[in-house]
Simulated scan of single mutants.
Amino acid sequence: MHKDILIRIVGGFVIGVTLGLLVQFFVAMGIEQEGYAWVVPEFQAFFPSEAMAIIAQILLTGLIGITFALAALLFEKARWGMLKQYIVHFAVTAIVWIPIVMTLWMPKTMANMFSLLASFLGTYVMTWLLQYKFSKRDIGQINAMLKKEGELHDN
């Protein structure tokens, strides 16, 4: 396996689990029960023990991190246009992220599902707009440098 891919997988897993634990912390603070909820009760009900549910949650949040880390490679496909890169990246990450987040933390209602989808889409569009703006700025700077370099060689 290519070293860069392995680094992305391990790093993505660690970041995914870390963010998942942070999300669970805030979810647990909103759940009214006596002790700390390592997993939400609805998710824990799928497993014979709390420990098994915690392990599953760690693996699932790690999978989210790996997905985002590997999906970032799509932006290195030079033959693809920026729009195609973002559409494929959005589809891949949404297919993994939405069902896992719904399973781990969200009560299964249509309103919650639409809310989750809207927040994912909204965040994605904002990220795309910012990335587009930065890319446009970078291209302008590169073009200015090339123009200046060309002027130096013409003299």
Rank of each mutant, 00 (worst) to 15 (best):
L70G: 01
P41K: 06
M113I: 14
K3R: 13
H2V: 11
A71C: 07
I54Y: 12
I95M: 15
M1R: 07
L121C: 04
M145K: 06
W97I: 08
F47D: 03
V10R: 02
A51K: 03
T18H: 03
L121A: 12
V23W: 14
N112K: 06
T93H: 07
P41T: 03
I7R: 03
V92I: 11
F90L: 07
F43D: 04
V125E: 03
I7W: 08
Q57I: 08
F46L: 11
G62Q: 01
F114H: 02
L59H: 05
M113D: 06
T61P: 07
E151S: 12
F75N: 00
F46H: 10
V125C: 07
G30A: 12
N112Q: 09
M126E: 08
I9N: 01
H153D: 09
K84C: 10
Y36M: 13
P48K: 13
I98L: 15
W38H: 08
L104K: 04
R79E: 15
V14E: 05
A37I: 11
F68I: 00
M145F: 12
L59R: 05
A28F: 03
I98T: 04
F90S: 00
V101R: 02
A69F: 07
V92C: 07
E50Y: 13
M102T: 09
K108N: 14
G150E: 11
T67M: 09
S119C: 14
Q24S: 11
L152W: 09
G35K: 10
I58L: 15
M145R: 06
V17G: 01
L63N: 06
L6D: 01
G30W: 09
P99T: 00
S119R: 14
A91Q: 13
R137N: 10
G20Q: 14
A118Y: 11
L6Q: 10
I58R: 09
V40Y: 02
H89V: 10
G12D: 08
P107C: 10
Q131V: 11
G20F: 15
Q24K: 08
F90P: 00
I31S: 01
R8D: 07
F47E: 01
P48V: 14
H153N: 03
L22C: 09
